[in-house]
Computed example of a mutant assay.
Amino acid sequence: MPDHTPNHDLRRRIDELGPWFHNMELDGIRTAPDHFLGDYPGFQWERLRPALPADLGGLNVLDIGCNAGYFSIRLKQEGAARVLAVDHDPRYLAQARLAAEVAGVAVEFREMSVYDLPRLGERFDLVLFMGVLYHLRHPLLALDLIHAHAAADLLVVQSLERGAGTAGALAADHDFSEHAIFDRDDYPRLHFVEHAYAGDPSNWWIPNRACTEAMLRSAGFTILSRPADEIYLCRRR
């Protein structure tokens, strides 16, 4: 006789929406128990949370590239007044809607990319931009659009980084004859991936730390802190 218990039905719904990149626990069921990063993105949240305002009450939040909605749900659970979560992938949004349903929280989901931000027509107290930058063909444009059309105050950025993990001081200008500066390991570098990285053809540009920080400054953000490797808390200038 078929098993129609609520837990069995949830397992079926989770499997139908797979594979999942967010390893979430939905009513005791792990969505990606064999994830190569383990408890992802749970461990990222633990690294990020201490850097966020202690009281999230009343905040209007935008989660760009929400995937299965882990961060959106956590922010709503911790008191954010409103969370709008966007992603270009309808399957990720279906996963996120299921996760929010199981968690019993009200999150708004919308299918759109970071390049669509101008049509939102509103700004947010807190913008999350986690694990998206290196998947974009036009990463600096994306940061410019966030600055111009979304972030009213705080921005959190997490990006995969490769190369030197240091960011040295650089002069504001260099003579045309200068060559050596470009060979420094801590010079801002954006590594272009022509085909794929880690089996993923959507990995387009991978910055080093100096490049991530330089792009954030260039787009009009002040870096307040780096609470963990590859994570930046910024304020809009």
Results as ranks from 00 to 15, higher is better:
1 M>I: 08
1 M>V: 07
1 M>F: 02
1 M>L: 03
3 D>L: 10
3 D>G: 09
3 D>Q: 08
5 T>G: 15
6 P>V: 02
6 P>K: 09
8 H>V: 12
10 L>R: 13
13 R>C: 14
16 E>A: 15
17 L>Q: 09
19 P>T: 01
20 W>S: 05
21 F>A: 02
26 L>F: 01
32 A>P: 14
33 P>Q: 08
35 H>G: 06
35 H>W: 05
38 G>E: 08
40 Y>A: 14
41 P>Y: 14
41 P>R: 04
43 F>T: 08
43 F>R: 05
44 Q>M: 14
46 E>K: 14
47 R>I: 00
48 L>P: 02
48 L>Q: 09
49 R>V: 12
49 R>T: 12
49 R>D: 09
50 P>R: 08
52 L>G: 09
53 P>Q: 12
53 P>K: 14
55 D>P: 03
57 G>L: 03
59 L>A: 09
59 L>S: 07
61 V>S: 09
65 G>M: 03
65 G>H: 02
66 C>L: 12
67 N>R: 15
68 A>E: 15
69 G>A: 00
71 F>G: 02
74 R>K: 15
75 L>I: 01
78 E>W: 12
81 A>E: 13
81 A>Y: 03
83 V>E: 06
85 A>E: 13
88 H>E: 00
88 H>A: 09
92 Y>V: 02
92 Y>M: 05
93 L>H: 13
95 Q>K: 11
96 A>P: 10
102 V>F: 00
105 V>W: 06
107 V>A: 10
108 E>V: 08
109 F>R: 06
110 R>Y: 01
111 E>A: 05
111 E>M: 08
113 S>D: 04
114 V>S: 05
116 D>Q: 07
117 L>T: 04
117 L>C: 03
120 L>Y: 03
120 L>M: 03
121 G>A: 07
122 E>P: 00
127 V>L: 04
128 L>K: 11
128 L>F: 14
132 V>Q: 02
132 V>N: 02
133 L>D: 11
143 L>F: 13
144 D>Q: 14
144 D>F: 12
146 I>F: 03
147 H>W: 08
148 A>D: 06
149 H>C: 10
152 A>F: 02
154 L>C: 12
157 V>F: 03
158 Q>G: 13
159 S>Q: 05
160 L>M: 06
160 L>Y: 06
161 E>Q: 15
162 R>A: 10
163 G>M: 10
164 A>R: 03
165 G>Y: 02
165 G>I: 00
167 A>T: 08
167 A>D: 13
167 A>G: 13
168 G>S: 11
168 G>L: 07
171 A>H: 11
174 H>C: 03
175 D>H: 00
175 D>Y: 00
177 S>G: 04
179 H>G: 07
183 D>N: 04
186 D>W: 10
186 D>Q: 05
187 Y>V: 01
188 P>R: 12
188 P>C: 15
190 L>E: 06
190 L>W: 09
191 H>L: 06
194 E>F: 13
194 E>K: 11
195 H>W: 05
195 H>V: 00
197 Y>T: 11
202 S>H: 14
205 W>L: 12
207 P>F: 11
208 N>S: 12
210 A>M: 09
210 A>K: 08
216 L>F: 15
218 S>E: 03
219 A>R: 07
223 I>V: 01
224 L>R: 14
228 A>L: 04
229 D>N: 04
230 E>V: 12
232 Y>E: 06
236 R>T: 01
236 R>N: 04
237 R>P: 13
237 R>E: 15
237 R>L: 13
